[in-house]
């Protein structure tokens, strides 16, 4: 009696072990099939069951082997936000180098601006982002991008940028403050074009200095050029005149550290050394 009870007990243990271990031993493809079909049968809100099974059967036979597990990569939100930002600029034909500093970067605003322009194409009504958003969210880039998207004139962009700067809602990038304390939007727009050209692999723009009326002869020493700051000049504008690139403002700034406390602190009448650039 005891012996047969023990035998039954042992048999029960083996049976349990078999049930527990069985799913691990079954091969993968049949697991996939079972799982999928079970999903369809249990979920009554899915469509007609025979169709689901039929389509599953056909798709399973065509599917790649399960060991090449579906690896649908989901990038982090931040990566996508950055992409969206790039898209906004790309939509304008502008590509900003990823290393460029972007103060007060606001990805949600960028994404929203993208969405709004998309909706506007169908509704015919453009809503601009930040209508009732707090002012500190404004970034100089977005201000300019939005204005460009709206097809506004350079003069309009100059006005809104300077109003925002006056109100303190944007900061003025280094080298873009004029001798009058305003923002040199002409140079800012030039800088955008410059970056777009560089991204498109086009040669840099030639220095504009040759075409301007600025007389250098009297200011010229043996191997040192000088430039006297005029009304409305910014370090960026001077850099464009002599080097054809806004980015070179730092070269002028470094050569004139004695008279300039910051790249944005230039004043009318200042005599600035313009260093030669090799090549």
């Amino acid at each position: 009696m005891i012996r047969s009870v023990v035998a039954l007990f042992v048999f029960a243990i083996f049976l349990c072990a078999y049930i527990v271990l069985r799913p691990n031993t079954s091969n993968r493809p049949s697991t996939v099939e079972t799982t999928d079909v079970t999903r369809a049968q249990n979920d009554s809100i899915l469509g007609p069951i025979p169709d689901v099974i039929a389509s599953l059967d056909s798709s399973i036979t065509q599917a790649p082997l399960p060991q090449t597990a579906p690896s649908l990569s989901v990038p982090t939100d931040n990566a996508k936000m950055a992409e969206t930002t790039a898209n906004v600029l790309a939509g304008l034909g502008l590509t900003v180098a990823p290393t460029a500093p972007q103060p007060q970067d606001d990805p949600m605003r960028d994404m929203t601006a993208n969405v709004l322009s998309g909706i506007g194409q169908f509704t015919g009504k453009q809503v601009t982002a930040g209508g009732d958003a707090p002012a500190p969210h404004t970034s100089l880039e977005m201000l300019v991008v939005q204005a460009l998207q709206q097809g506004q004139s350079d003069a309009y962009i100059d006005t809104i940028v300077n109003e925002a700067a006056k109100a303190g809602t944007i900061t003025i990038p280094q080298g873009l403050a004029t001798a009058n304390g305003t923002v040199d939007t002409a140079v800012l727009l030039y800088s955008l074009i410059e970056k777009a050209r560089a991204a498109a692999g086009e040669p840099p723009l030639p220095p504009t200095g040759a075409n301007t009326d600025i007389a250098l002869a009297s200011d010229q020493d043996a191997d040192q050029r000088f430039y006297t700051v005029g009304t409305g000049d910014s370090l960026g504008a001077i850099a464009v005149k002599f080097y054809g690139s806004v980015e070179k403002y730092d070269l002028i700034y470094q050569a004139n550290r004695k008279v300039l406390s910051s790249p944005n602190a230039i004043q009318v009448g200042q005599r600035l050394a313009i260093p030669e650039v090799a090549g």
Partner: peptide, 26 residues
């Protein structure tokens, strides 16, 4: 064709500009 991209993330309450999108939707 004719779809507008409004990513779900832009519609969330965590987007400070959600109201702008709602206005654009009428």
């Amino acid at each position: 064709p004719a779809a507008v991209n409004v990513p779900f993330a832009a519609l969330g309450a965590e987007n400070p500009y959600q109201a702008d999108i709602l206005r654009a939707l009428g």
